[in-house]
């Protein structure tokens, strides 16, 4: 049952990156759009993510609940040492969620719309930036439970070249996912062209950011290369992701958009597999001591069992409903 719980944790992180990421990316694309095309971007976005946008963010809740029920030591360690980036991320989530729905539901269209839009766009960048920083700090062994100074314990646990570049990389990934996702939802050829263009730009930005991450890893002494190339599974994943990048570029230039979403989804999944496979079963690497392992720092068997049953039972309700939601609104769009 422990493996069921871990699988759900992994899957909810992946789904949050994919679905939540595309959702954040929509705000990033709006930010990057020219003044004239902001309105169009917004419209395409509401059409694409409107019905599912609340659901997209549930994956984060599922992941956090799995952590605090099943792996409480990991949850409380992260909560203590990454307090500051977590608070900033939360403020981003609050600002973004409320601004998005207030913009949609304000009965009067006036200058408040600008306030909502600005809030939405900036928080769409800040939130994934800090999500990336949190992930980067968690895996790179910056957290130091033995630190005695405030700055060492609570600031440099996350403020560093590597986490920040991971944050930037996360932002570019979100923008890229959003562009790919919205291509499939566009109504006109001009709109389609615009988002294909955006997808190209964002994938270049993501590649550039990935290079930054590699350089930062080198400078901060993070053994990123050995995570990615340390074992056959990770190597295979990285190679496949690289190959699919070529496939994606060819498709983008040929404008055959049929497989784009699947390719993009596969790329992100492959990267996550590559990183997590080498780290497994450690979720959090600590400075000067052993990392926090999912196999050791877990709740009692009874808790894990109950949690697994709850997750499995929940899926019986959630997954069909979610698929039906996606399916029926896609069908409506076509009709």
């Amino acid at each position: 049952m422990l493996y069921v719980v871990m699988a759900y944790l992994w899957a909810s992180i992946l789904l949050y990156v994919l679905m939540g990421g595309a959702d954040f990316g929509a705000g990033i694309l709006e930010f990057l759009s020219t003044k004239k095309s902001k309105e169009q971007t917004r419209k395409a976005m509401y059409r694409a993510i409107g019905p599912i946008w609340e659901a997209n963010h549930m994956w984060l809740i599922i992941a956090i609940v799995i952590l605090f029920v099943g792996f409480p030591v990991i949850y409380s360690t992260v909560s203590i040492y990454l307090h500051i980036p977590l608070v900033i991320m939360l403020l981003g989530i609050v600002a973004r969620g409320t601004a998005f729905s207030f913009r949609n539901y304000d009965a009067v269209q006036d200058k408040m719309q600008t306030v909502y839009s600005k809030t939405f766009m900036y928080s769409s960048i800040i939130t994934p930036l800090f999500l990336g920083i949190i992930a980067g700090s968690a895996v790179s062994g910056r957290i130091d439970p033995l630190a005695t100074h405030f700055a060492d314990a609570y600031i440099f646990s996350w403020l560093g070249l590597f986490p920040v570049t991971v944050g930037i990389f996360t932002v570019t990934i979100c923008g890229f996912l959003a562009a790919i996702f919205i291509i499939g939802e566009t109504k006109t050829e001009a709109e389609r062209q615009r988002f294909i263009q955006k997808a190209k730009h964002m994938s270049l930005a993501a590649i550039a950011a990935a290079l930054l991450v590699l350089i930062a890893a080198q400078r901060d002494g993070v053994p990123l290369a050995s995570w990615l190339f340390g074992n056959p599974i990770s190597i295979t994943c990285v190679v496949l992701a690289a190959l699919s990048l070529i496939w994606m570029w060819v498709s983008l230039f040929r404008q055959s958009t049929k497989w784009l979403r699947i390719i993009a989804g596969a790329q992100i999944s492959l990267l996550l597999v590559a990183i997590t496979y080498e780290h497994y079963p450690v979720l959090i690497n600590l400075k000067n001591s052993d990392g926090l392992s999912l196999l050791i720092h877990k709740g009692t068997d009874k808790t894990i069992h109950a949690l697994a049953v709850a997750l499995l039972a929940g899926s019986v309700f959630i997954l069909p409903a979610l698929f039906y939601l996606l399916y029926s609104f896609n069908k409506q769009e076509e009709a």
């Binding site: 659901a55 549930m58 809740i61 599922i62 609940v65 799995i66 605090f68 029920v69 099943g70 409480p72 030591v73 949850y75 409380s76 709740g299 009692t300 808790t303 109950a306 949690l307 709850a310 997750l311 039972a313 929940g314 309700f317 959630i318 979610l322």
Partner: peptide, 19 residues
């Protein structure tokens, strides 16, 4: 750290209900 595994059950079900 101590309470999570004990009283977490309603939270995990609540996650489903909320979803």
């Amino acid at each position: 750290k101590h309470a999570g595994p004990i009283f977490g059950m309603p939270f995990s079900l609540e996650g489903t209900a909320f979803f």
